[in-house]
Design a protein around this nucleic acid. Structure first.
Lengths: 206, 206
DNA sequence: GCAAGTGTAAACTGATTGGTTCACTTCCAA
DNA sequence: TTGGAAGTGAACCAATCAGTTTACACTTGC
């Protein structure tokens, strides 16, 4: 584990440094961010920064790790009520889409992809805390729904992943490339409804 | 248009330069590639390189533009035979998946995303020559199949995009993050079959 | 009041990079 | 044969950046 080793967490300015680094790294990526810039944004001298973190790399890893933790907290509460699947899936899709299109997720995704070779562990961390966790929650619900006889699914994991993919339709790729920045509620709802419709066509109990 | 303006296309070494740049940029990205490195890879002096291209930026744009053009050539031939939709879709999905997972597509994708702010036009070019073109071809086939009564689709464009997304399930994201490098035929076929199955469940003529 | 711990500002090092210049060579066509 | 275009390689410049060091200031507790 690289975590927390070599990192001094005592001292008043620790959080400040982390916060400044978060801001700059998220805006500029790893290479794009200079340490001077980070120190300035954090309202801290470079020497202080280096008294907490041994180097830029470790600071970066720490920032992304913290962001991923945050992400885990925001994880969607799948209301496990016994509402009809269509309704529950629609709500879930709303959460998924809004997360995928969030500034936060988009930025982290870009950084993970851009820095893939330099920091292979970033992608894994993001994947585990983001898509994979979402899939797990979804699979949990689907599993319940199947035992309740509301759905008919052979491979639950795959179904969950297909649903996630369906939620990206027409939206995610355009956002990732910066082709489209804002999406109207109507656009989003249309995609969501169709995702649910297609999913139910395959997996809905007859 | 920035294209071709300020670029001298005469001279024996022009192609060499472009080829070297392609190699290095594709492997290292924009920032990651140094001009010296490119000149070396091209077997050309830095002065020569700069006699062709006014600066690194333009060289980069030229390289990626050429790559995107190439992509259009590889575009999938959708056999418009009147084979049953399931069969045609399975073949199409095979092409889509294999392209998405190719080293080529993965690299270009990464560069487009990473360099999104510096070169916004790259993403658009990639999107237009890749996903969008694929969608168009697919939509064309779907449209025919609908008139033939083999499928029932209201929004053909959306259906095509959903199919593309279904093809990514379980594979693409893992490849993009570098979590998984190689995928077995069995894995791929499984995903493809399920993509077709889900698609047909929604859009197959009853 | 003083010493230790924490922080600051700024200068500095060493390395890299994009881009330029220049003296020199190679090669081909008129 | 010769003149000019194309190419070479190495030195060079200015800028940027990670990381270090030094000399100084502030607080806090004893």
């Amino acid at each position: 584990m690289t975590h927390s080793a070599d990192i001094v967490r005592t001292g008043r300015k620790f959080e400040q440094v982390l916060e400044g680094a978060r801001e700059i790294f998220m805006a500029e990526g790893f290479e794009g961010a200079s340490v001077d810039e980070i120190a300035k944004a954090a309202g801290v001298s470079k020497a202080t920064l280096y008294s907490y973190f041994p180097d830029k790399r470790l600071l970066f890893v720490e920032v992304v790790r913290a962001q991923c933790d945050r992400m885990a907290d925001r994880a969607i509460e799948l209301i496990s009520e016994c509402a009809p699947p269509r309704q529950i899936l629609t709500v879930a899709a709303g959460h998924i889409v809004r997360f995928l299109l969030s500034d936060f997720a988009q930025r982290i995704f870009r950084i993970c992809v851009a820095e893939r070779d330099r920091f292979p562990e970033l992608g894994q961390s993001f994947y585990a805390n983001g898509p994979q966790m979402g899939k797990a929650r979804l699979a949990e619900y689907l599993s319940d729904a199947v035992t309740r006889g509301e759905l008919r699914i052979e491979d639950i994991e795959l179904a969950a992943e297909q649903f996630q993919e369906l939620c990206k339709t027409r939206l995610w790729l355009r956002a990732a490339f910066g082709i489209q920045e804002v999406f109207s509620e109507a656009e989003i709802d249309y995609v969501i409804d169709n995702a649910v419709e297609t999913f139910m066509a395959r997996y809905g109990a007859k």
